[in-house]
Protein backbone atom coordinates (compact mmCIF):
# COMPACT_ATOMS: atom_id res chain seq x y z
CA UNK A 1 0.00 0.00 0.00
CA UNK A 2 1.55 3.20 -1.18
CA UNK A 3 0.52 6.70 -0.58
CA UNK A 4 -0.16 7.46 -4.21
CA UNK A 5 -1.86 10.79 -4.86
CA UNK A 6 -2.22 10.67 -8.61
CA UNK A 7 -2.35 7.83 -11.12
CA UNK A 8 -1.35 9.33 -14.47
CA UNK A 9 -2.35 7.32 -17.54
CA UNK A 10 -0.51 8.71 -20.57
CA UNK A 11 1.03 6.91 -23.54
CA UNK A 12 3.00 9.88 -24.84
CA UNK A 13 6.30 10.09 -23.02
CA UNK A 14 6.76 13.77 -23.85
CA UNK A 15 3.34 14.67 -22.50
CA UNK A 16 4.20 12.63 -19.38
CA UNK A 17 7.21 14.88 -18.93
CA UNK A 18 5.19 18.09 -19.31
CA UNK A 19 2.54 17.10 -16.80
CA UNK A 20 4.97 15.58 -14.35
CA UNK A 21 7.17 18.63 -14.49
CA UNK A 22 4.27 20.95 -13.98
CA UNK A 23 2.80 18.88 -11.09
CA UNK A 24 6.14 18.54 -9.38
CA UNK A 25 6.69 22.23 -9.71
CA UNK A 26 3.42 22.76 -7.88
CA UNK A 27 4.29 20.24 -5.15
CA UNK A 28 7.65 18.46 -5.10
CA UNK A 29 6.40 15.88 -2.58
CA UNK A 30 3.55 14.69 -4.69
CA UNK A 31 3.51 10.94 -5.20
CA UNK A 32 2.62 10.26 -8.83
CA UNK A 33 2.46 6.88 -10.48
CA UNK A 34 2.71 6.96 -14.25
CA UNK A 35 1.45 4.16 -16.52
CA UNK A 36 1.55 4.05 -20.33
CA UNK A 37 -1.95 2.77 -20.98
CA UNK A 38 -5.32 1.77 -19.55
CA UNK A 39 -4.39 -1.89 -19.17
CA UNK A 40 -1.36 -0.94 -17.07
CA UNK A 41 -3.48 1.40 -15.02
CA UNK A 42 -5.93 -1.41 -14.18
CA UNK A 43 -3.00 -3.69 -13.29
CA UNK A 44 -1.58 -1.03 -10.98
CA UNK A 45 -4.96 -0.65 -9.28
CA UNK A 46 -5.24 -4.42 -8.97
CA UNK A 47 -1.78 -4.51 -7.42
CA UNK A 48 -2.85 -2.20 -4.64
CA UNK A 49 -2.26 1.27 -5.94
CA UNK A 50 -5.11 3.39 -4.63
CA UNK A 51 -4.69 6.99 -5.90
CA UNK A 52 -6.65 10.00 -4.75
CA UNK A 53 -7.36 10.92 -8.33
CA UNK A 54 -6.75 9.43 -11.78
CA UNK A 55 -5.68 11.58 -14.72
CA UNK A 56 -6.04 9.86 -18.08
CA UNK A 57 -5.49 10.58 -21.70
CA UNK A 58 -8.28 9.54 -24.11
CA UNK A 59 -6.54 8.30 -27.23
CA UNK A 60 -4.14 5.54 -26.40
CA UNK A 61 -3.32 2.14 -27.81
CA UNK A 62 -5.45 -0.66 -26.41
CA UNK A 63 -8.73 0.00 -24.64
CA UNK A 64 -7.85 3.68 -24.33
CA UNK A 65 -9.23 6.28 -21.96
CA UNK A 66 -12.82 5.47 -22.84
CA UNK A 67 -12.39 1.81 -22.03
CA UNK A 68 -10.67 2.70 -18.81
CA UNK A 69 -13.56 4.96 -17.79
CA UNK A 70 -16.03 2.18 -18.57
CA UNK A 71 -14.21 -0.29 -16.39
CA UNK A 72 -13.52 2.10 -13.52
CA UNK A 73 -17.00 3.56 -13.34
CA UNK A 74 -18.69 0.17 -13.42
CA UNK A 75 -16.49 -1.21 -10.65
CA UNK A 76 -17.65 -0.41 -7.10
CA UNK A 77 -14.03 -0.41 -5.92
CA UNK A 78 -12.94 2.37 -8.27
CA UNK A 79 -15.96 4.28 -9.34
CA UNK A 80 -15.71 6.83 -6.56
CA UNK A 81 -12.10 7.77 -7.50
CA UNK A 82 -12.30 11.13 -9.30
CA UNK A 83 -11.14 10.46 -12.83
CA UNK A 84 -10.08 13.49 -14.88
CA UNK A 85 -9.64 13.31 -18.63
CA UNK A 86 -6.70 15.30 -20.02
CA UNK A 87 -6.74 15.16 -23.81
CA UNK A 88 -5.59 17.19 -26.81
CA UNK A 89 -9.04 16.82 -28.32
CA UNK A 90 -11.36 19.79 -28.20
CA UNK A 91 -14.09 17.89 -29.96
CA UNK A 92 -17.43 18.37 -28.34
CA UNK A 93 -18.26 14.77 -29.10
CA UNK A 94 -15.20 13.60 -27.12
CA UNK A 95 -16.16 15.84 -24.22
CA UNK A 96 -19.79 14.68 -24.22
CA UNK A 97 -18.72 11.08 -24.57
CA UNK A 98 -16.28 11.28 -21.66
CA UNK A 99 -18.90 12.71 -19.29
CA UNK A 100 -21.40 10.14 -20.39
CA UNK A 101 -18.86 7.53 -19.28
CA UNK A 102 -18.92 9.34 -15.96
CA UNK A 103 -15.61 11.18 -16.17
CA UNK A 104 -15.42 13.63 -13.26
CA UNK A 105 -13.75 16.38 -15.30
CA UNK A 106 -12.46 17.05 -18.76
CA UNK A 107 -9.47 19.25 -19.46
CA UNK A 108 -7.71 20.06 -22.70
CA UNK A 109 -3.95 19.61 -22.82
CA UNK A 110 -2.43 23.09 -22.78
CA UNK A 111 -0.30 24.41 -25.62
CA UNK A 112 2.31 25.97 -23.43
CA UNK A 113 4.41 25.32 -20.34
CA UNK A 114 2.55 28.08 -18.58
CA UNK A 115 -0.66 26.38 -19.52
CA UNK A 116 0.53 23.13 -17.98
CA UNK A 117 1.52 24.85 -14.80
CA UNK A 118 -1.91 26.39 -14.57
CA UNK A 119 -3.57 23.00 -15.07
CA UNK A 120 -1.23 21.39 -12.53
CA UNK A 121 -1.89 23.96 -9.84
CA UNK A 122 -5.63 23.85 -10.51
CA UNK A 123 -5.65 20.07 -10.16
CA UNK A 124 -3.68 20.20 -7.03
CA UNK A 125 -5.51 23.08 -5.43
CA UNK A 126 -8.90 21.69 -6.25
CA UNK A 127 -8.78 17.91 -6.23
CA UNK A 128 -5.98 17.38 -3.73
CA UNK A 129 -6.42 20.24 -1.33
CA UNK A 130 -9.87 21.76 -1.46
CA UNK A 131 -12.07 18.82 -2.22
CA UNK A 132 -13.15 16.27 0.37
CA UNK A 133 -12.55 12.88 -1.14
CA UNK A 134 -14.30 9.64 -0.23
CA UNK A 135 -12.60 7.00 1.88
CA UNK A 136 -11.06 4.29 -0.10
CA UNK A 137 -10.48 0.83 1.23
CA UNK A 138 -7.77 -1.28 -0.26
CA UNK A 139 -8.36 -4.96 -0.78
Amino acid sequence: MTNTAILLVEDDVKDQKFILKALNKADEELDIEVVKDAECALNALKNGTLPKIIITDLNMPGMGGRGLLDVLKSDDRYKSIPTIVLSTSENESDIDDSYSRHANAYMVKPDSIAGYQRVASLLQDFWLKEVKLPRLVAE
Binding site: D12, K14, F18, D111, S112, I113
Partner: peptide
Protein backbone atom coordinates in the same frame (compact mmCIF):
# COMPACT_ATOMS: atom_id res chain seq x y z
CA UNK B 1 1.08 16.74 -31.32
CA UNK B 2 4.83 16.90 -32.19
CA UNK B 3 4.51 20.58 -33.12
CA UNK B 4 2.82 21.36 -29.83
CA UNK B 5 5.42 19.40 -27.97
CA UNK B 6 8.35 20.94 -29.87
CA UNK B 7 7.09 24.41 -29.06
CA UNK B 8 6.82 23.54 -25.43
CA UNK B 9 10.27 21.98 -25.34
CA UNK B 10 11.58 25.24 -26.77
CA UNK B 11 9.85 26.96 -23.86
CA UNK B 12 11.32 24.47 -21.42
Amino acid sequence: APLRQSAMFAEL
